[in-house]
């Protein structure tokens, strides 16, 4: 059986390398760069070209497959159903459920306001809604697989875990602070639409998933190109000394800088991962890179401006501070214990 076990782990490693990390694609692009462009893939220019082509193709393939799969799952959890499930729970259990459902509910920052209003007017505590709003952009199934592809499985799972913890604790804290008075009055007065439990046929789910792929692709492709472009530039052109002076493991401010720079930026995890990947390649701590990614995806100027329409300033400031503080702590935690994961 010893031989059998070894074979299974080898098969798994092969699947992981070829399907997830796409070693075949890396080799193919290396061949293209060397024989097609006449550049050395290990060299400076060739390395950047290789990073760019390989990462763009890899992310686009994963994006297509993952969004399709995830959307299929999501089609079972429309916001109306999520609201009903959450309404049946109380206390911490509701926050945990909200954080978990945040990972699988169809949601983009453009629908955060109707969702916020719909949840709140139905009587869900705002802390529960915030647990959902934090987890939703931060952790989703697609980002987990991507993290596993770029880094490895332990980092991906650790990322999900701390992301969920941040969502649960952040939402619970907001509940504790009794901030209901800082929600605009019209939110509570909005009617609750009797939720029609529209059962979808398989064909409708397929169409939903297909449309999601097209829509999300149309929205993120530019961010992916920009993200990979920045990643490729960091990879081979920005001096390592410069990056390590700013964000090096030994610099106490590295996580702080990464978080503050990331907060106003608007992009999703697909665009930020290549940057994080390149930064880690330059010796930046994994915690610093994760803090940057989380800050970019969880908080952004556009989403804050939208939220401002339904909540008053003190609650908005509290929300941003809690999430930022959480991200900074996660960053330092991973920098201290990250060696376990890499």
């Amino acid at each position: 059986m010893h031989v059998g076990g070894k074979t299974i782990s080898e098969v798994f490693k092969w699947l992981n390398d070829q399907l997830l990390r796409m070693q075949w694609l890396s080799d193919l692009v290396a061949w293209l760069v060397r024989d097609g462009f006449g550049l050395d893939p290990a060299g400076r220019l060739g390395g950047s070209v290789h990073f760019f082509i390989y990462d763009v193709i890899k992310i686009f393939i994963l994006l297509g497959v993952l969004i399709f799969t995830v959307s299929w799952v999501q089609s079972y959890f429309p916001p109306e159903r999520t609201r009903r499930i959450l309404g049946q729970r109380k206390g911490l259990g509701a926050n945990i459920m909200a954080a978990l459902l945040g990972t699988i509910t169809p949601f983009c920052s453009c629908s955060s306001i109707p969702l916020f209003i719909g949840f709140t007017s139905a009587g869900l505590p705002i802390g529960v809604t915030f647990s959902f709003l934090i987890s939703s952009p931060l952790v989703d199934l697609a980002s987990v697989i991507l993290l596993a592809s770029v880094f490895n499985w332990s980092i991906a799972l650790a990322y999900v875990f701390v992301g969920l913890v941040l969502a649960v604790l952040g939402g619970s804290l907001i509940s504790r602070m009794k901030m209901e008075g800082h929600v605009e009055a019209f939110v509570f007065n909005s009617p609750v639409l009797a939720s029609e439990d529209g059962h979808l046929t398989r064909r409708q789910r397929f169409e939903f998933a297909r449309d999601q792929v097209a829509e999300i692709f149309g929205k993120v492709w530019l961010y992916v190109l920009i993200g990979v472009g920045i990643g490729a530039a960091i990879h081979n052109w920005v001096p390592e000394a410069f990056i390590s002076a700013l964000l090096g493991q030994d610099k106490w401010w590295s996580v702080l800088v990464a978080t503050i720079v990331g907060i106003p930026m608007y992009a999703d995890i697909f665009g930020t991962l290549p940057i994080a990947e390149a930064l880690v390649g330059k010796g930046v701590g994994i915690g610093t890179a994760l803090a940057f990614m989380m800050a970019v995806t969880a908080l952004s100027l556009p989403s804050m401006i939208m939220l401002k329409r339904v909540v008053k300033l003190p609650l908005l400031v509290l929300f941003v501070s809690i999430v930022a503080a959480g991200i900074i702590m996660i960053g330092y935690f991973f920098n201290a214990f990250g060696a376990m994961f890499l």
């Binding site: 719909g118 639409l193 339904v310």
Partner: peptide, 13 residues
């Protein structure tokens, strides 16, 4: 307008 949309109780557009 978000406020008007919300007035219909609609969560997904």
């Amino acid at each position: 307008d978000f406020a008007q949309i919300a007035a219909y109780g609609v969560m997904s557009t």
